[in-house]
Design a protein around this nucleic acid. Sequence first.
DNA 1: TTTTAACACGAAAACGTTTTCGTGATATAT
DNA 2: ATATATCACGAAAACGTTTTCGTGTTAAAA
Lengths: 348, 348
Amino acid sequence: MKRKITLKQIAKELDVSISTVSKALRNSVEISEDTKQKVQAFAKLYNYRPNNIALSLKNRKTNTIGIIIPEIVHHFFSKVIRGVELVANKRGYNVIIGLSNESFSKEVINMEMLANGSIDGFILSISKETQQMQDYHHFNETMSQGMPIVMFDRVVSDIKCDKVIVDDFNGAKKAVEKLIQNNCKSIALITTKDYVSVGKLRTQGYIEALEDHKIMPQSSLMLKIDDQLDSEEHLDALEAEIEQLFKSNKEIDGVFAVNELYALSAMKVARKLGLDIPNDVQVIGFTDGVLSKHATPSLTTVSQHAQHMGERAADLLIDKLEREYDVEEEEFQTVIIATDLVERESTN
Amino acid sequence: MKRKITLKQIAKELDVSISTVSKALRNSVEISEDTKQKVQAFAKLYNYRPNNIALSLKNRKTNTIGIIIPEIVHHFFSKVIRGVELVANKRGYNVIIGLSNESFSKEVINMEMLANGSIDGFILSISKETQQMQDYHHFNETMSQGMPIVMFDRVVSDIKCDKVIVDDFNGAKKAVEKLIQNNCKSIALITTKDYVSVGKLRTQGYIEALEDHKIMPQSSLMLKIDDQLDSEEHLDALEAEIEQLFKSNKEIDGVFAVNELYALSAMKVARKLGLDIPNDVQVIGFTDGVLSKHATPSLTTVSQHAQHMGERAADLLIDKLEREYDVEEEEFQTVIIATDLVERESTN
DNA sequence: TTTTAACACGAAAACGTTTTCGTGATATAT
DNA sequence: ATATATCACGAAAACGTTTTCGTGTTAAAA
């Protein structure tokens, strides 16, 4: 079990100084051709690679970006990661992940853990609990220490940093307009509580679409699901709530749900109540994941282009990291990713 | 934009030496109470945290583990990651990810990138291309440099290292036995080409289950799908192949598929051919993902306990990393995770 | 022959820690 | 008063690099 070889060892073996070895390997003109050849050959033989940690320390740059997300077992987030990893790797960066598990404290701990030199910058989407508590001190502290942050999807407008968001409002609006156009007269909304930023925006899109078409939004048609029911464990409760919605509003002929799970549950409940999709009820979801594609009937959804979001976020961050110590003119961008309506079988 | 504060700065500010500061912060008995108080107060005020990179360099230990997987947008792998992250975090480690994207060269490059000091050990599942090429030099090189590896799910028996695998053989066998027990007389298999280790094992489980019940395995009932068709883009081709299978073997009344996608496609095709599930055909898949749960009818599957695999792998790796420089008696474990058959609507 | 220039290399600092060892000052024991 | 022990702290090395600067040797120019 030989340890990795170091410059020092090569130097000793070849009876030259460490500096000479280092320079020879970087092909410096200071070193004679002879010596270079010798050193390079030796290094190749022993498969020398500079130690990343030492380089990071010396350069005060780790070439690693940290990504903090609420949950990884989630099609949307894993697609974002893939996007981040793709451009990060292409541009010579590694990716290190932290999961907040939707918890404020885990988010803070994870950030502190990474902020102490392990990474050069953050890409993150904030946890529900953080959104609820509205405590953003950890973001501000991190940034005040010169570590850039790019937020995606779930962002908070109070914080000055780069952001990549999906056009939740218009995505939702277009979806609902599609339902209206398809002759739905009574469109229900299944959404989250308002503190979830994206849920709120999608709700607003729903409302405006209705209003634009002179339809009075009715609160009885707007079901706001509690977080607790999000998780796979509480499917029954979720379905019960939706069933209640259908039963109290028999006239429902369209459903817009702010995520896949809600949409699928709606379809399931509708089917159970003897309603045909899309003939009796048309359904549109948000987030274009595997479930939508493979559901029966397959689900019409608003695609968020998650991977693209990840790519943009990574580019934004790395651009900032590599910008020549600039004019200090702290300007932050917000990239808005347009949504697409992917039409499938759940709508006419 | 103040940089992170260092020991040196604190020392200068308080007019003591760096050593004193370091010791004071670690509550050394060498330092007087007075000085400790002063230093600790100052450090707290400025929110001092030791620089991880410097610590890593000094200790020759990064407290970071690298995980290399073929694909992250995949329920199974993301669940494994969650498991790894869970115990890693609990035990004071970070997780850094690399995606091979099923490519041999990306796997090698990613490993080399991380092996140069960035991490203490690997957890990985090898790419299809690597399995096909059977070129494992990068694993051996990494290990010969003293960096431990834990392989999970897709492992290679030639390599001596810790492994966490699912009991593919028995999982498959039990699934097929379930079908037999449920009175299926003609059970089809939808699997991968044989070089995919887990696919091969599951195929063997299928065969042995049949043989144990005096049923002659027929190659015409065993459909081996080419990789290319795995991806979401080639769903049509995949379905076409399956449709062919059904059409040439009208007597099929049971299907065992080695993954979710194959199973779902089988259900879709069966439905298209006017077959009812589970009355005409019963279907069992492998990998308990979201799709199985939310499919209609929901799919009976062999659960792999992905998160548990991740947890075990992480524990194995960290145990090895933290074992007091031991008896050098290089002994490697292979943990076998038992599968569970999750019965849902696609079987009787 | 002397001065200068080019060449080839080494010493040392720096990145931010921790830790070993040494040392001056004070307090205690003889 | 002297020897010794304790205390409180600092210097320096080490982790593995890169880079600046200095320097001795040789070759070219005066």
